[in-house]
Simulated assay, not measured.
Amino acid sequence: MQEEIAKAKQAMERKKKLAEKAAAKAAIRAQKEAEKKEKKEQEKKAKKKTGGNKETETEEVPEASEEEIEAPVQEEKPQKEKVFKEKPIRNRTRGRGPETIPRAILKRKKSTNYWVYAAPAALVVLLLLVLGYYYVL
């Protein structure tokens, strides 16, 4: 009983730690997004002031706050630009498995084939006629 209580307490502590970590990450992410938005707004204002000329544009560097200095800075890796080949026709490959049959076809009522019943019945009638002919004679 005490072991179960101890395990439950440890689980709660782990959950709390994970929640705190997630909250910290979310706060850092929100702060970075806010900084990006602020930077974009400053760039827009600078463009409006200069009339859209980049040559006369002066870059303003925002001051680093205390939280930014404490948080570990991750270097962003330069992303490779993906080069897409233009193909006018798209090749469609067939799947490996069997083709799927629509459910409506699977569930439809099968038509009864009357030849299955008619052929044996005709043979029985013929047999009776032949036997009757030989019996009468």
Score class of each variant (00 low, 15 high):
E20S: 11
A23Y: 08
K32Y: 02
K36V: 04
A30V: 04
K25F: 01
E33C: 03
A24W: 08
I28K: 10
K21M: 11
I28S: 09
I28P: 00
A24G: 04
K7S: 09
A8V: 06
K37Q: 15
A11T: 13
K17Q: 15
K15Q: 11
A26M: 04
K21P: 00
K15V: 07
A34C: 00
K16E: 14
A8D: 02
A6N: 10
K39A: 06
A30G: 04
K17A: 14
M12N: 02
K15E: 14
A6V: 08
K36Y: 05
L18S: 06
A11R: 15
E38I: 04
K37I: 14
I28R: 09
K9M: 08
E13S: 12
M12T: 06
K37S: 13
A23R: 14
E13G: 03
K7N: 10
E35K: 14
A11E: 15
R14E: 15
E13M: 14
K39R: 07
A22W: 00
K21C: 08
K21F: 07
I28F: 05
A26F: 03
M12G: 00
A30I: 05
K32N: 10
A34N: 02
R14S: 11
K17N: 13
Q31S: 12
A11H: 10
K39W: 01
A19D: 07
L18K: 02
R29T: 05
A22H: 03
E20W: 05
K25T: 08
M12H: 06
K37M: 09
I28T: 09
R14C: 01
K17T: 10
K32A: 05
Q10A: 15
Q31I: 00
K9C: 03
A26C: 02
